[in-house]
Design a protein around this nucleic acid. Structure first.
Lengths: 355, 355
DNA sequence: ATGAAAGCGCTAACAG
DNA sequence: CTGTTAGCGCTTTCAT
């Protein structure tokens, strides 16, 4: 008769609920742990009847294999890390809805693929910390949302062979894999649209020190050039992605006493606060100044007036990031990807007369 | 002379970068793994010089202890699960900024405490799936964001001794720990404020089938009662938390042909879409109808008109959820907590005349 | 078809 | 102070 000692009747560590483990199931089923292991993994090496019995037992006792031990033995892991850098200067707290939407999209894509998501935040000034969950073996790779100004640090991580894919812009001499929206096209679309609305003095709100913004600015200049216009440096303002950036941008433009009849902002949040500030100064949107934002966050369509915006394909973004990362973890190269952007035209950029 | 075989020069599994491990460091330092283990954990049992040498070696080689193996040996774990249920019917995709803000707040609180965050999404109709990361030993406890209508399922989880704390309302006969805003007070504050603005016909937008909403409604009726008014059922509309809910609510009120001079919406998103729909119907906000929302998401202050809202203390919420969960994982009881709410008054609820 | 035994990478007695 | 040994919970040869 097998011993039927209840699973470790002592309670030494309060944290340790004496969890059921494979040995317990084995004892209860009157077989060895090998058999239980095989049965639970659906091995054909085990008698059908035995397997059924074991599985039933496990299910009724709500036994589940300890993934940590399994991972150790199998040298496998199905967790990937998602790292959201924060700007240490502004201590920006994950505030832009776009980042959050990306997080949701990643969560969905990972769930689809049967992966777990370990989320962490790191100081953007110390991006190498992003590799910590990988170095400690917690995750098999890392998705980094946002490259900021840290191209070099990212290259270093890549050189260390940390499987990593970054949401951001493709840059020259880049050792890491990026997935990002087509920022040049996005900038071009927005600007061309504003030009088409008859606007000629289009202000650009965004910090061109950031790669993604720089590319949008390039698209902006391209569209201007195509219309035979030269960009006026006075119309470009380096503002941060913090919400109040939109307000500051508009104020700066007024300080410069530069005339403008449109604003292209590099995020919807910026566009919204810019619109508010314009309104406070008695400027009609879109009558006097047309506005286009970027990202097309959900709220944009509910804003007043509804905000025109450049949409990035979020669902696709999450999938592409995950797909690329999985390639890398398999040891295969992952080419960077550029996702298409589209312009969503709403009231903020279309003067009533031209509608 | 110690053998200096390079760490497993073969590359069998492409997924397996041959990671550096403790034995390698030990060999390189000419000591045993025990000594390395002790040195790295800062044990005083090891010679200062030896420890320094080992640590230097580890650092220069970027060696980090494999957490999985360490956890297994130590039977410890510093990962907690954050589960975001989604409504399977509407397939609502993590869309409300409030949930996202909560996620950020939790990330911060967990980082502060040196815990990792494993995020997963589960179908709200099968909330028992929320326990999976715990059952498999991946996490030591779970924070559930939102209780929806699944009080009973949550009770079952608690009965199974899954360490879990839920963001939501305190309910009678509840076996699990909740942390939540004081919904009754929130409802009371908002309603009292609207009454004070001279409004008497205050519509309530929110599905009272949800515990949190029911409590806000109770606060609403209490405030009405304090003013000697009885709630008019015609003024309450069960709308979902989806953004379009606000619009549907307003349309329903018009269909009922019921007069109202204020709207209290159970989320800011609802309030915003309600305001848009009112405007589309030529109703002035706040002139004819004053509006108050709930959650005070960041965008509310940038909306037009800026939205009055009941604020929940997000930073505190994350901290409280984490603190309660850690208590539970330590085997101590964790009492449910009610966090204070406050009303943030902005233009949407204050008619220009009364300003 | 099943069990015994070894070992994934680490730590903690127990000896020296 | 340091090394040897055993074992965390699991999977997998290798026998039987």
């Amino acid at each position: 008769m097998p011993k039927t000692t209840p699973p470790a009747a002592d309670s030494p560590t309060p944290a340790q609920q004496q969890r059921l483990q494979m040995a317990d199931i084995a004892r209860l089923a009157g077989v060895s742990t090998s058999t239980v292991s095989r049965a639970l993994s659906g091995s054909s090496l085990v008698n059908d009847e035995t397997r059924a019995r074991i599985m039933e037992l496990a299910r009724s006792l709500k036994y589940t294999i300890n993934i940590g031990a399994q991972n150790l033995r199998l040298k496998q892991n199905r967790t990937i890390g998602v790292v959201i850098p924060y700007d240490s200067a502004t201590r920006q707290h994950l505030t832009d809805p776009f980042f959050l939407a990306m997080l949701g999209s990643l969560a969905d894509a990972l769930t689809e693929q049967g992966f777990d998501m370990l989320v962490s935040r790191v100081d953007a000034e110390q991006l190498d910390a992003a590799a910590a969950p990988f170095d400690t073996g917690r995750v098999i790779g890392v998705v980094l949302i946002g490259q900021w100004r840290h191209h070099d640090q990212l290259n270093q991580l890549a050189a260390r062979h940390v499987p990593m894919v970054v949401w951001g812009a493709q840059l020259p001499q880049q050792l890491y894999c990026t997935v990002g929206g087509d920022n040049v096209a996005g900038g071009r679309l927005a600007t061309a649209h504003l030009l088409q609305q008859g606007r000629r003095r289009i202000a650009f709100l965004g910090d061109t020190g950031l790669p993604e913004v720089a590319q949008r600015y390039q698209g902006y200049t391209e569209a201007l050039a195509a219309a035979g216009l030269a960009p006026d440096p006075q119309l470009q303002v380096d503002v941060s992605f913090l919400p109040q950036g939109g307000s500051e941008g508009v104020l700066e433009l007024r300080r410069r006493a530069v005339a403008f009849d449109a604003v292209f902002a590099c995020s919807d949040l910026l566009a919204m606060t810019a619109m508010n500030t314009l309104r406070q100064h008695g400027v009609d949107v879109p009558g006097q100044v047309a506005v286009v934002g970027y990202d097309d966050i959900e709220l944009s369509s509910y804003f007043h007036p509804p905000l025109s915006s450049v949409r990035q394909p979020m669902r696709e973004a999450g999938r592409a990031l995950v797909a690329a990362l999985l390639e890398l973890t398999e040891g295969r190269p992952a080419p960077s990807r550029l996702l298409p952007t589209e312009l969503v035209v709403r009231d903020s950029s279309v003067a009533p007369t031209s509608r």
